[in-house]
Simulated assay, not measured.
Amino acid sequence: MKLLAAALLRQAASVPTPAAGISALGALPAGPGLRGSDGGSQLLHQLAVGRVTSALTNSTTTLADMTGLALPVDAGGVYLFEFSGTYSTSSTSCFIAAGVNGPSAAGTGLMCNFHLHIGVGANTWHNGCTAAFGDFNTPAFVQAANAPTPWRIYGSAEIGATGGLLAPQFARNSGAGTITIQAGAWGWLWRIA
């Protein structure tokens, strides 16, 4: 039986090449990384998380990024993501619209769903998959004015030649009123390739 010694991880620009037959684990700025004795590197995970710290409002039909949930993406990366929280509307005739903003798309591009949970046994979905940055979908349903309604946006994105930020967006889709994303909304982004 071989016992492992305690290790202290610290963030570094690179993981040093270890001795023959050993793999080194390090904490890189983009996430944990491994380096084998052959000098080859492999990023284990690149996970970013965010949170909305105070309520966000939008009374226009122009999509706005959800502050606190804009997460970094690299050129050429493939990512899985999920953003979730609660929203409310000031009027039952004012529906939420939601989408995802990003720097550029390539290959498989963007594929995401927008889901609202209205109550026990009463879920509603948008009418299709959002397939481009800056596009939106809306379930066109309001539980009641000023009542918190859970929402969720999830999917995948392949980033093109330009990196930047990937962020969920929101606006009002119809009617007069204001859409509010409550504080505490959260999200994660995981680079898988």
Rank of each mutant, 00 (worst) to 15 (best):
M1S: 07
K2E: 07
K2G: 03
K2T: 15
L4T: 11
L4C: 08
L8K: 10
L9R: 00
R10D: 02
Q11W: 00
A13F: 02
A13I: 05
S14T: 15
S14A: 15
V15Q: 12
T17Q: 14
T17V: 15
A19M: 03
A20T: 14
S23H: 07
A24C: 07
P29F: 05
G31I: 12
P32Y: 12
L34Y: 13
S37T: 05
D38G: 13
G40Y: 05
S41N: 04
S41F: 04
L44P: 03
H45Q: 08
Q46I: 03
L47G: 03
L47M: 12
A48I: 02
V49M: 05
G50I: 02
R51Q: 15
V52P: 07
S54F: 06
A55L: 02
A55R: 06
L56D: 00
L56S: 08
L56Q: 15
N58R: 09
N58W: 00
T60C: 08
T61F: 01
T62L: 12
L63N: 13
L63S: 13
A64K: 09
A64P: 00
G68P: 00
G68E: 02
L69W: 00
A70K: 09
A70P: 12
G76Y: 08
G76K: 05
G77D: 06
V78W: 02
L80K: 11
F81H: 10
F83E: 07
S84A: 14
T86E: 05
Y87L: 14
S88C: 01
T89Y: 04
T89E: 06
S90C: 05
C94G: 11
I96K: 00
I96A: 08
A97I: 10
A98T: 13
A98C: 14
A98F: 03
G99R: 06
V100A: 01
V100W: 03
V100L: 10
V100Y: 00
G102K: 04
P103C: 12
P103G: 06
G109R: 04
G109A: 14
L110F: 08
L110A: 06
H115K: 12
H115P: 00
H115M: 10
I118L: 14
G121W: 01
N123F: 00
T124L: 01
T124A: 13
W125K: 06
W125Q: 09
N127A: 12
G128H: 09
G128V: 06
A132Y: 05
A132H: 01
F133Y: 15
G134T: 13
G134E: 12
N137R: 13
N137F: 00
P139A: 09
F141K: 10
V142H: 02
A144Y: 02
A144C: 08
N146K: 01
N146G: 09
P148E: 09
T149I: 15
T149E: 11
P150V: 10
P150R: 04
R152G: 02
R152K: 15
G155S: 10
S156V: 01
S156A: 15
A157M: 06
A157R: 07
A161G: 15
A161C: 07
T162F: 06
G164P: 01
A167S: 15
A171V: 10
R172Y: 03
N173F: 10
S174F: 03
G175C: 09
A176Q: 12
A176G: 13
A176P: 04
G177N: 04
G177L: 07
T178S: 05
Q182I: 01
W186Q: 13
W186E: 14
L189G: 11
I192Y: 14
